[in-house]
Structure formats: C-alpha cells, structure tokens
C-alpha cells in the first residue's frame, strides 16, 4: 500500500465507509467461530480427569483473559501512534477498544471466580494472575473515566493516550511485583499455571474461541469507532450527507 493510500484511509471520513464494509464480514466470521468453539468446548474436548466438567470454563476464561491483555497493548500502540503522528483516528480507535477490553477483563475475572469456587472452594483467591487481572481492570477503568471526564475531545484523546502508554509500561512491573508478593505470602498453595496436561483438542478449543473473541472485538470496535466518528464529525458536509442518506 502506498503512503498516499494510508493517509487516505486514516482520514475519518474515508475510514467511516471502509469500517462499515468490514463489519459484516468480521461479525459473521465471529459468529461461525463462536459456534465452532463452543462445539469443541462441549462436544469434542474430553472430560478432564482431575477437574471433571468444571474445567470447560477455561474455554471462555482463558480467551477472555488473553483478549483483555492483548486489547490493552493494541490500545497503547494506537495511543502511541496518535501521540507521535497526531492522527485523530488512532485515538478514536483506542477509545473504541477500551470498553470491550474492560468487558473481556471483567469476563475473565467473573469466570475465574466461577472456576475457582468448585476447584478451590473459594470465590476469590489472591492468586498472582487473578490479582494482575484485577489491576488491569482498574487500569481500563482509569482510562475510560479519564476520557469521559474531559469534555474537549482533543485533550481527551491525548490525555487518554498518555495514560494508556503509562499503563502499558507499568503492566509488566505490576505483574512482576504481584507475582513476587504472591510467592512470598502464599507459598506453594494454588495456581492457575499448573494446568492439567493439555490435550490437543483442548488447546484447539481455546484457540478457536480466542480467534472468535478477536473477530468479535474487531467488529464491535469498528462499529463503535463509526459512532465516535459520526459524533465528532457531525458538522462536516460528508457527515450530513451520510445522515441524509440514512433517513
């Protein structure tokens, strides 16, 4: 792709149309993959010898946890691009991704708790991974509330971008310190990392579900970014043309 083209697509007006064309594809793909992933999770993957049927929760838990971390990194990349090249669209993409990332983070916490209860007998343990996931959730909340509190869109974009970058630099430090804290205080009690030897079908199921979440995220973020673009650009001529056509 030539440079000119890239600039053309990074203009919100062009991207609005492009995103609109891409959404149905990703949405359909995501629905198919979710169906396949659920089929593998419940009908193909065998019962686990140690954990019985309760282990099937990992088919939603692990992909959600992966997605929540991955989305934060993507957000930070968009934020970095936005700050460096002053492109409005990348800030809008970061803003469009944040709620979905927070949602996946919440799902990972929720399902982790529902997995922990039958396995460990407690709804919540201060396991290193669960704790880091909780802190990641706090980072998402901080990003979203900072953007929501600033009325001037330009300042909101840039302030959000900065806090996302600060957050992404801190995530490894936080993870490391929580892990250190956990080994010191809890000793060798319980951990997610001692997963039972994973059968190929189980891994396949998790990967299919992860790709399904991935395509879902793309579709929903594109949908949300279109709304953000429309809200911001409603005074421009191209936006009023679209609105005229939508009626």
């Amino acid at each position: 792709m030539s440079k000119v083209n890239l600039y053309k697509f990074s203009a919100p007006a062009t991207f609005y149309g492009l995103a609109g064309q891409m959404i149905p594809g990703f949405a359909i793909l995501s629905a198919i993959l979710f169906a396949a992933g659920l089929y593998i999770s419940f009908f193909v993957a065998p019962t686990d010898a140690q954990q019985g049927e309760a282990y099937r929760i990992i088919f939603i838990h692990v992909p959600a946890a992966w997605m929540s971390m991955f989305i934060y990194v993507v957000m930070a990349v968009y934020s970095g691009i936005g700050l460096a090249f002053n492109t409005r669209l990348s800030a809008m993409m970061a803003q469009a991704l944040a709620p979905t990332g927070a949602l996946f983070c919440f799902i990972a916490l929720f399902t982790g708790s529902f997995w922990g209860k039958p396995m460990w007998g407690a709804w919540w343990v201060w396991d290193a991974r669960l704790t880091s996931q909780l802190i990641l959730f706090f980072l998402y909340i901080g990003f979203i509330s900072l953007q929501a509190a600033i009325e001037d869109p330009k300042r909101a974009d840039r302030a959000g971008a900065l806090i996302a970058l600060v957050g992404v630099i801190n995530v490894p430090i936080i993870y490391f310190s929580v892990k250190w804290w956990n080994t010191l205080h809890q000793g060798a009690s319980i951990s997610f990392s001692k997963a039972p030897t994973m059968a190929h079908t189980m891994l396949a199921g998790m990967l299919v579900m992860a790709v399904a979440c991935w395509t879902y995220t793309i579709a929903i973020a594109l949908y949300r970014v279109r709304l953000i673009i429309l809200e911001r650009e409603r005074h421009t001529t191209w936006a009023s043309e679209i609105l005229g056509g939508a009626k």
């Binding site: 802190i135 706090f138 980072l139 909340i141 901080g142 509330s145 900072l146 509190a149 806090i163 600060v166 957050g167 801190n170 430090i173 936080i174 490391f176 310190s177 929580v178 250190w180 804290w181 010191l184």
Partner: peptide
C-alpha cells in the same frame, strides 16, 4: 479521578515497601 489513575500505579511501590 486522580485516585483511579494513580492508585493502580502505586501498587508495586506498596508491595515492595510493605514487603
């Protein structure tokens, strides 16, 4: 708002300080 932004970032300091 500043507490939402800053407190999660304080966590490593808290862990190693009290630790």
């Amino acid at each position: 708002l500043v507490s939402l932004l800053v407190l999660p970032l304080y966590i490593p300091t808290l862990i190693f300080g009290a630790g």
